[in-house]
Nucleic acid binder design. Structure first.
Lengths: 149, 149
DNA sequence: TCCAAAAGGTTCATTTACCAATTATTGATT
DNA sequence: AATCAATAATTGGTAAATGAACCTTTTGGA
């Protein structure tokens, strides 16, 4: 459905403003739906994101600031998200021997198993929810990459 | 820049997952930057959004659930955002005579003036920040509308 | 007419986002 | 070697997101 109908608004003055709102709306649309996958596992979308980042580096450790770089948001949160995940036994935290300011984070077996369990579900969700064919998805990715300059 | 480089990740397994992450990343990219416009006016991006919705209906009142429908998120927040805006004198709230469960919200002169002040800034921001030409922006809008089915 | 269910809002509790300030460590400069 | 700026991470405070519980009013049957 067109974004104007979706949010019951008058036509946008210009395509740029419309694209902005459209992006916000679509992002919320997707996250809201996807988070239902994680709910039964007591995982927030952001915690899931952190776990994926850690798996990407596994078995090497990742520092908090390195997680932050790969995340979408702010530093202070990476710290707290890691803490939450540690409480759930999904990650291990240890002082970095090279630089004692840093903290090495590694995903645990439990974390890896949970991710694996979610992989198929998430993949299916994405394909089912994103009503675009392969070619259109590529177009979208190209446009988004270009958008950010 | 390509999203994989941006978040320093290995190539995505499929375009759908990539599009998902790309959308999240781009949304955060835009909101973070745009919110700097509102900061000096003590306005959050969501409060700005509510004000715009109210202006769209002005001079008619809008109910909380009607705001909610046009927003991206949840009901309980629309209620609180309206409260914040009322404290700042940007909106007026009154019992709806037709249905006393409902609450009529109207944007005030002060709110309208603030929006007007921001209009030019926001428009310029959008055009400057979204590095796409008119045609590409239209393409993006079409893809996003289709994505949501 | 009366009562149960539904609808509109608000409030609570928990989690997260964000900014600023703080602690600890490292590196560089003199 | 002593000092000082920069870096890594945590913490505190405030705003916001979210789901659930709750109150009030309305609606729609029996």
């Amino acid at each position: 459905m067109k974004i104007e109908e979706e949010i019951k608004q008058n036509p946008f003055k210009d395509g740029y403003t419309k694209a902005f709102v459209n992006l916000l709306f679509t992002q919320s649309y997707l996250v809201t739906r996807q988070s239902k996958i994680f709910k039964p596992h007591d995982l927030s979308p952001e915690q899931y994101n952190v776990l994926r980042i850690l798996r990407g580096q596994f078995p090497n450790p990742t520092t908090v600031s390195s997680i932050q770089e790969r995340m979408l948001n702010k530093m202070s949160n990476a710290s707290r998200l890691v803490e939450k995940l540690k409480q759930k036994g999904m990650v291990k935290r240890s002082a970095c021997p090279k630089d004692r300011r840093q903290v090495d984070i590694v995903i645990t077996k439990k974390g890896l198993e949970l991710l694996e369990l979610l992989d198929a579900e998430v993949k299916n969700f994405n394909v089912d929810t994103i009503h675009l064919d392969e070619k259109e998805v590529d177009q979208l990715n190209t446009l988004l990459d270009k958008l950010r300059g």
